[in-house]
Design a protein around this nucleic acid. Structure first.
Length: 477
RNA sequence: GGUCCCGUCGUCUAGUGGUUAGGACACAAGGUUUUCAUCCUUGCAACAGGAGUUCGAUUCUCCUCGGGAUCACCA
């Protein structure tokens, strides 16, 4: 058995969204799990649609998600070049083979003429097939006209690693264009030639190509090429509606999720879980687990909806698993403007107490800025709290005054001892005859004015005696 | 319209010719952490519909319905 070789073959027409990344991820997993090779090939045969810089962006995205390829446009490899626009001679060579074998011919019609044929078919409610209009005497193909495949229509049954067995009738087969009049090949032709030349063993791609399979099979045979394993991925659906996820419908650049504070691990885990599971109840998979456990056969046949809430949950799971040092490194770009300035020791100290509360790294400023800068009181938070809203403002202030008195009896040293502050809070609870959610909730707001924060003793230790008292006083006045 | 694909809780999904149809997210209610978040427990909630095969269908077959993809000198 030869080495497994899979490829990801995007066209550089923009960024990659999660749908594209999932295809790449699965191809990557298939290669890695059998020590094979994962290849990046850029399908830039449509000059009109090409977007400058998109190739770099694609490569950056793959690396950012840990999907490092073994061969590609920037790193080369034994079967290069890996950019289709640089392989025109290859396509021409294969095209001429087909011409010589009588399996390709120049298309003599102008686009308008073909459109007229098509309109006629539509008017007669018949499917349009170019092959019904094959010219009788063929021109010599000089490259100025499109080159068409001379198909041999027949029924096909084929196996797809994900979809199982599929079947299509001869009417699905037509004389499609191999070479465009601009000298570039079409996707339909180029990908088959390249996959063969690059010795690709598994073609893993999106559902949009499935209806062309009969044509591809017909071409494989005309070219006398061995067929690879085919695997068709179902679509990922947008958050709302039933449309497939697309850039038009607001699909995000995958790099944007990284910028939004999602971890690579969580993103890969989540994307893999969209349409795949290992049959157990495991939800969290590391990349290594994905590599060993993934199988095309267990990929779902139906589309999966992108649910960001689930991604957020998964990210929180991953954040909690990180070591403090690792978390610290990953947070470097996410500190708020005051947190950024403080030193690594202080940052780590604070990270330690907020780690389990972080859902995404982007939550970091909201969760930590109050440690670095005095927050502005926002009484609406108190008024919206279901426990505290029952008290009058005067009663709320009374609680803070009691806390102020109690804290003043502690010294700087006591504040560093969470046991001491805890004790102080306990006796305060008795003295005020207040319930914990009320009293501690009130103090928490006065100290942080944040939606969530660590435990009071921890917060007070990090803030110190003076700052704690200043904030209580500020809330009272 | 032709061709092809798909159809289990709101969402991601497990599963089987006989199950109380399981898990996770979300949501709700309790509990722990004397607050919030985390965590734990519980609850809510699904086999698209109709025939057929069968002692028995969510599972197998057919039809219907629903959703999707594709019908380019785009990929």
């Amino acid at each position: 058995m030869s080495e497994v070789r899979t490829r990801f073959a995007p066209s550089p027409t923009g960024f990659i969204h999660v749908g594209g990344i999932r295809t790449a991820l699965f191809a990557f997993l298939v290669a890695r799990q059998s020590n094979g090779k994962f290849i990046l090939r850029l399908e830039d045969t449509d000059q009109k649609r090409e977007v400058t810089g998109a190739d770099q962006h694609i490569m950056k995205s793959l690396h950012a998600l840990g999907l490092n390829y073994d061969e590609g446009p920037d790193i080369g490899g034994p079967f290069g070049p890996y950019r289709q626009s640089e392989r025109l001679d290859t396509y021409k060579k294969w095209a001429l083979k087909l011409v010589e074998a009588g399996r390709a011919y120049a298309d003599p019609y102008a686009p308008e003429e073909i459109q007229a044929f098509r309109n006629e078919s539509i008017a007669n409610k018949k499917p349009f097939l170019y092959r019904n209009h094959r010219p009788e005497n063929s021109l010599v193909w000089d490259g100025s006209k499109p080159l068409r495949f001379k198909s041999q229509p027949q029924d096909y049954t084929w196996h797809d690693a994900v979809m199982g067995n599929s079947h299509a009738g001869a009417e699905a087969i037509d004389d499609f264009i191999l070479m465009k009049s601009d000298g570039f090949p079409t996707y339909n032709f180029a990908h088959i030639v390249d996959d063969a030349e690059m010795q690709i063993t598994h073609v893993i791609r999106g559902q949009e190509f499935i209806s062309s399979m009969p044509n591809y099979l017909n071409l494989y045979e005309a070219l006398n090429l061995e067929k690879p394993v085919f695997a068709t991925m179902p679509h990922i659906l947008a958050e709302s509606g039933n449309k497939k996820l697309s850039k038009r419908d607001g699909a995000k650049d995958v790099l944007e999720y990284l910028r939004d504070g999602f971890l690579v691990e969580a993103l890969d885990n989540f994307i893999a879980s969209l349409g795949w599971n290992d049959g157990t109840e495991q939800e969290i998979f590391s990349m290594n687990e994905l590599i060993t456990k993934f199988s095309l056969e267990r990929v779902q046949r139906s589309g999966a909806r992108f649910d960001e809430k689930r991604l957020i949950w998964m990210n929180g799971q991953w954040v909690k698993q990180l070591s403090l040092d690792d978390l610290f490194v990953r947070c470097s770009d996410f500190w708020g403007e005051n947190g950024r300035e403080s030193g690594p020791d202080r940052q780590k100290e604070i990270l330690k107490v907020v780690q389990e509360r972080l859902k995404t790294l982007a939550d970091l400023p909201a969760l930590t800025e109050y440690f670095f800068v005095r927050p502005t009181p926002d009484w609406s938070m108190v008024d919206e709290n279901k426990q505290l809203k029952k008290l009058s403002r005067t009663e709320q202030i009374e609680l803070l005054k009691a806390a102020e008195t109690a804290f003043e009896n502690l010294d700087d040293e006591d504040f560093l001892d969470e046991g001491k502050t805890q004790e102080c809070l306990n006796s305060l609870l008795e003295r005020t005859k207040s319930k914990p959610p009320i009293l501690f909730g009130m103090i928490r707001y006065a100290l942080t004015w944040a939606p969530f924060s660590p435990g009071l003793p921890e917060t007070m230790r990090l803030l110190g005696r003076d700052e704690t008292l200043v904030r209580i006083k500020a809330a009272i006045s």
